[in-house]
Simulated assay, not measured.
Amino acid sequence: MQRTLDADEWRGWHTGGFPVGSWRSRDGELQAIAGAPRIDLISRQRYQDFTFRFEFALPIAGNSGVLCRVEEDVELSWHSGPEMQLLDDAGHPDGREPTTRNGALYGLMAAEQETSMEPGEFIEAALTVYDGHVEHWLRGRRVLRYRIDDPSLHARIAQSKFAGFPRFAQADKGHLVLQHHGEAARFRRLSIETPD
């Protein structure tokens, strides 16, 4: 089953409604407001196995991310959900580190190939999770694949900044999150496909 995820399908992190002071819904886009309070968007529904398709655009030095299997009983979304990094590698300092470049599993695994972008350019992307198998797609190319229960991944987690968050990458079902990192990230054509 595939369906569109418009603004009605999202709410603010730890809130019940759409965070109009931090995001706007305009011209078919979900737009993070630059300089506004950093309130992430969280899907109203929880998902286990899915393909989440979207297009995103970032400003110069822009930074955002899509997190999956997020549980909301933590302080911040990244304390729970693994993140597909979305980044202007050329403009942002995180672009110098492979595990924080565009398409990476943030802070843990580098993308297998680089995906450059121009500021304001929309890029087709997808995040797929099936039976614990995760794939990151950019521009129609798979740039990373991993298993969320891989012992080698959890060994990396134990040596990372996520080690202090026991809920990280533990849920087998959870919310999607669009990260507000302070910049004017834009998302459009969001849809999700699930087995049922």
Rank of each mutant, 00 (worst) to 15 (best):
L5F: 00
L5C: 08
A7E: 03
A7K: 04
T15S: 15
P19D: 05
D27V: 11
D27A: 15
Q31E: 14
I33M: 09
A34T: 10
A36N: 07
I39W: 00
I42N: 06
S43P: 14
S43I: 11
R44V: 13
Q45H: 15
F52T: 03
F54L: 15
E55F: 06
F56I: 05
F56E: 02
A57W: 03
E75N: 13
L76C: 11
L76A: 14
P82Y: 01
M84Q: 06
Q85D: 00
L86T: 00
D89H: 06
D89A: 12
H92E: 06
H92Q: 08
D94I: 06
G95L: 04
E97W: 11
T100W: 06
N102C: 15
A104H: 02
L105G: 05
G107Q: 00
M109T: 05
A110E: 04
E121W: 03
Y130N: 11
V134R: 04
V134H: 00
H136T: 08
W137A: 08
W137R: 05
R139N: 12
R142D: 03
R142S: 07
V143Q: 04
R147I: 09
D149H: 13
S152Y: 10
H154A: 10
R156C: 07
I157W: 00
Q159K: 13
F162Y: 05
A163D: 04
F165K: 00
R167C: 08
R167W: 00
F168D: 00
D172E: 15
G174N: 10
L178H: 04
Q179L: 12
R186M: 08
R188A: 05
E193N: 08
P195T: 10
D196T: 13
D196Y: 12
